Simulated scan of single mutants.
Amino acid sequence: MPTRRRTTPGSPQTPPHASTLLDHLRRLVEATGPSGSEHDVIRAVLEAVRPLADEVTVDAFGNVIATRRAAPEARRCVISAHMDEIGFRVRQVTPGGFLRLEKVGGLDDRILLAQRVWIRTEDARLLGVIGTKSAHLLTDADRGSPVPSTQLYVDIGARSAEEAADMGVQIGDPVGFVGSLNELGRDSGRYTAHALDDRAGCAALLCLLEGYREVQPPVTVICVFSVQEEVGLRGVQALARTVQADVALALDMTAADDTPELGPPHLSLGSGPAIKVMDNSTLAHPAVRRGLEAAARGRFPVQRELLRGIGTDAGALQYLGGGVPTGAVSVANRSTHSPVEVLDLRDLSQAVELLQGFLSVLPALHLGFLPADD
């Protein structure tokens, strides 16, 4: 359902692309795809992207590469968003039919108890719950410390290991959080789901390509829907050895710090997309930052992101060929790497506009490390 137009005096109107973004995002977050098991997400992306691109391929890693061509002499720009989500693998099936888990990606043990999860077997998805000791049975020691992930178990209703096997469960099956896309409050324009990191980026790339359905882009756009980002940028590392481009960008979520338990915010929901300056994986190229800032100037606010505790596909994309100017666009996301991530739809819509603007200035953009007048 598209976001309803706001009528409160002085409040922002429904952002551009809202309906398209929500349609894509709603479908993408329904899929279960922890790192290395992105099959269902790949299928959803392929269905959506094939009508929008001149060429679509899936490489050996599972990366989906969708190319929308400009004139032969035009520059080439790679933009990557990752399909994988944090999650688990089934490590053990106990004699009583419970499942032990191995974490995949950066999960916080404190938030894992009493969560609903999907177990993606070869043929189906099974609903399970990460079990928790009843409040009536807790000891003082229980209340004082989180349960380590190695002690977690998933209850799928099986009475024995044999029953779990009959349901199709095998060691190594992927496990992901249960969730769907929902708006918080009423007409807030802020949405929650698991795996917004980075299915929201994937939805934005699809929306970007929608804009070139009937018109040729100013540069050749190579949209990469990558895999295994959450476990070390592995999908794009492989891709970086084969794809040639003049510029590369990552589009990803970043950690908002505008909630009450934190100090003065660096990144806030509703304050516009963020232009990355640095993180743990890359220092954004100054020419790319200049181009992004020029694309946003006078149109909408942007934030500057400096965040050590994060990495994106940009960290691998910067090594394309012999190395290319690389940067990233981020969207602030609350409760990142949890089942209740939260973003502002306006930030995501403006991220699409920022990418469109950057592509429009890219043909004439000076890509040297030093400014053109130096």
Rank of each mutant, 00 (worst) to 15 (best):
L362T: 03
D344G: 10
T7R: 03
V178H: 11
W118N: 08
A124Y: 00
P2W: 02
R116A: 02
V361C: 13
L21K: 01
L283W: 14
T94A: 05
T139M: 01
G157D: 06
C77P: 01
L25D: 01
V236D: 09
R186G: 01
L262I: 04
P148K: 04
D279F: 12
A195K: 07
L52V: 07
I275M: 13
R75W: 02
R110Y: 11
M253L: 13
G235P: 05
V302N: 05
V64P: 01
H24L: 02
N182L: 13
V247K: 00
A296C: 15
V56P: 07
V227C: 11
Y212P: 05
T192A: 15
M253C: 14
Y191E: 10
D374L: 07
A364P: 00
E353H: 09
C77T: 01
I86P: 00
L208V: 03
P286R: 07
T259L: 00
D84K: 09
Y212R: 08
L345R: 02
Q170D: 07
L365C: 13
Y191K: 05
D54N: 10
D23T: 11
A351G: 08
V169K: 02
T132Q: 06
S149F: 02
C223T: 11
A141R: 10
G211D: 07
A295I: 12
A296V: 15
H337G: 03
L126N: 03
G327A: 04
R125V: 05
R76L: 01
V352W: 09
V329P: 01
A31E: 15
E261A: 08
G96E: 15
G311R: 12
L370M: 12
G321V: 00
H82M: 05
S180C: 11
A18F: 11
R289N: 04
R43E: 15
G87F: 08
G368F: 04
S271T: 08
V175L: 13
G179N: 07
G106S: 06
P325H: 05
N63L: 09
P146N: 03
R43G: 13
V277I: 15
D23Q: 09
Y153T: 14
D109L: 07
T139F: 03
G10C: 12
V224R: 10
T57N: 06
V221T: 11
H266A: 13
A165L: 06
L317G: 01
T242A: 08
L370E: 14
A71H: 01
G201T: 08
R186M: 04
L21D: 06
E229D: 12
A250W: 11
S19A: 15
A70E: 02
A284V: 11
A141F: 01
A135L: 12
L370I: 08
L22T: 10
Q115T: 14
V219Q: 00
T326M: 12
T254M: 04
S80V: 00
L22G: 04
L251T: 03
Q303H: 12
L137D: 14
L367C: 06
D374V: 15
A284M: 13
V154W: 06
V29I: 07
G321I: 00
T312M: 09
E47D: 12
L138T: 07
Q318R: 14
I310R: 10
